[in-house]
Amino acid sequence: MIFVENLNKKFGPNHVLKGIDCHIREREVVCVIGPSGSGKSTFLRCMNGLETISSGSIVINKHRLDDSKTNINLVRQEAGMVFQHFNLFPHLKVIDNVMLAPLKVAKTSKEEARAKAEMLLAKVGLAEKMDAFPGNLSGGQQQRVAIARALAMDPKIMLFDEPTSALDPEIVGEVLAVMKDLAQEGMTMVVVTHEMGFAREVADRVIFMDQGRIVEEGTPEEIFSTPQHGRTQGFLSKVL
């Protein structure tokens, strides 16, 4: 589903990703953990072209991201993204946030887009907030709307960039619950997170990144209980 080969990313002289190799299968839930500045968010953002690739290749569903002929907007329709700061459109009602891409990108009919948006909002538990503006919702509610918005395009992959890092601790759970449901439905997910509990419980595989490299990867059991690498052990001893 996602093939990453020798991915390198440089911001000027800053070598942020140093040869990432990674293969993510369909229906797999992969959590990427690691210290700040390890390149995990950049890695995720490369997967839907929010960051350009310096060298190497990424193939998502047969679309080559490093090929300039690839229509990046097609790739993005297949890979939904959820951001740390939600990035809902503040001038649009909740329902219109969810309907925007289906209406304007997929050219779905208005009735169909609306029905779908209502269904998705009900799914994330926010059916009653349809006509509210994002500014009137709590952070946890906004993030759930953001998940519904990303799902509206029927993506085959969902990318989560620290989806709970901007939330108060007591509302983190409501967002994680939605993500967990999604994982159980078989969505292919890549989640950059600091929520070790979530990674341990939901992930099929955990990737530990440090200084632009994948240091270690394995099942949650392997990473959390018997980490092989010194840096993984050091990181986990600080966060667990």
Binding site: N48, G49, L50, N73, L74, R76, Q77, G80, M81, F83, H85, N87, L88, F89, L100, A101, K104, V105, A146, R149, A150, M153
Partner: peptide, 17 residues
């Protein structure tokens, strides 16, 4: 905010949309 542009990009909206 830059995040607005990124969110629109991530949804597959082209530049004009």
């Amino acid at each position: 905010a830059k995040g607005q542009s990124e969110a629109a990009d991530a949804l597959g909206l082209n530049y004009w949309r």
